[in-house]
């Protein structure tokens, strides 16, 4: 074919577009290099020092898990020093060294906490339990804690998924159909701002069990932000996208599933994140107010016994659990919206 040569000028080689930066922020200069290689062994030594303090300095009143604390601290220290010695060239060390300063700071912090509580008693009991007492909670109250975690998750996840699904469906309908928008949107705007926890007394009255009431409230708190953001996402899709699809022979079903929903998906995820945050709040309040199980109930129960170590222990577990769920949602979002980054990373 007699194709003019200059036609090719616009067609660059596949390397012509943005390339991913390997391994995050590049270390620049001597300071960064030093930090990368020195921070981990230094942190390791700090942990070993923390272990020495725990083991050698006698407690004011004997705690049953002081030895375990010292062993764990020594374990972390040996692990860090060992990784600096034997894994320095492995990719995993890059991750460890990135948090090297954090490891060091944690060792100092825990030692200070240990000294101020168990070793000197400067910070008084029962409000300031020493680290080994929280360790004791995890070793001695493990079955109750596991049961509470399971209860909380069994309440949270079905409620959240149900709310996400209902909110998404409602949002798509409101964003797409003018008549659904006419009736649905005012309800969304009027009832939506009510915190789901405000429904608590009414929900506990109407539902057959506190469990179903709490599930309903968690679903409600998730559904509203998801519905609002999905509908606004759907209704702000540029009309040119629809024009293109219509000329290409798309029917309404195609326009909704293949144009409107994918275009609105970034918004849907914003709603899902907001919903997840408020569902945590509803979960804990519902468990404190009526549901006789779960981490919220555990907090309440621990407070009743003035068991502050159990309170802190449960708070740490909740932080780990909820931040993991948020990370999971981030992961799902990044997989589904990979096109937003402009770089395919599988």
């Amino acid at each position: 074919m007699n194709k003019p040569v200059q036609v090719q000028t616009d067609t660059a080689t596949p390397t012509d577009f943005t390339l991913p930066v390997e391994g995050g922020v590049p270390a620049d200069g001597l300071v960064a290099r030093l930090r990368e290689h020195v921070s981990v062994p230094v942190a390791g030594l700090l942990w070993l020092g923390a272990a020495a303090v725990s083991a050698a300095w006698p407690d004011q009143t004997a705690w049953s898990r002081t030895t375990l604390l010292a062993i764990l601290q020594a374990g972390v220290g040996i692990g860090l020093v060992g990784s600096a010695l034997f894994l320095a060239r492995r990719p995993v060390f890059k991750v460890i060294s990135e948090y090297g300063l954090w490891f060091g700071a944690l060792a100092v912090l825990i030692t200070a906490w240990e000294v101020l509580t168990a070793k000197t008693g400067i910070l008084p009991l029962p409000f300031f339990p020493p680290p080994q007492s929280i360790l004791e909670v995890y070793t001695d109250d493990v079955s109750r804690l596991l049961e509470s975690i399971a209860h909380s998750m069994l309440l949270l996840l079905p409620g959240y998924l149900l709310g996400g699904l209902v909110g998404f469906t409602a949002g798509v309908s409101i964003g797409w159909s003018k008549s659904v928008h006419y009736w649905g949107y005012p309800i969304l705007r009027f009832v939506g701002p009510l915190p789901a926890t405000a429904w608590l007394p009414i929900a506990f009255f109407f539902f057959p069990s506190t469990f179903s009431a709490a599930t309903f409230l968690i679903a409600l708190s998730t559904a509203f932000p998801v519905a609002v953001l999905t509908s606004s996402g759907i209704s702000t899709v540029t009309s040119a996208y629809y024009d293109i699809a219509r000329t290409l022979g798309a029917d309404t079903r195609f326009l909704i599933t293949k144009v409107a929903i994918p275009a609105a998906l970034p918004n849907v995820f914003v709603g899902l994140f907001m919903g997840l945050g408020s569902s945590f709040a509803v979960l804990i309040v519902a468990e404190m107010m009526g549901v006789k199980a779960g981490l919220g109930w555990y907090l309440q129960w621990a407070q009743g016994w003035a068991a502050y170590a159990n309170l802190y222990g449960a708070l740490i577990i909740m932080a780990l659990l909820f931040s993991s769920l948020i990370s999971l949602l981030f992961y799902v979002r990044d997989r589904m919206l990979v096109w937003q980054k402009g770089i395919v990373r599988w």
Binding site: T238, A240, Y241, I244, V259, P262, A263, L265, L337, W339, Q340
Partner: peptide, 10 residues
């Protein structure tokens, strides 16, 4: 169109 209006998610 003047804008390519490609679907960014595809």
């Amino acid at each position: 169109f003047q804008d390519p209006t490609l679907y960014p998610w595809r």
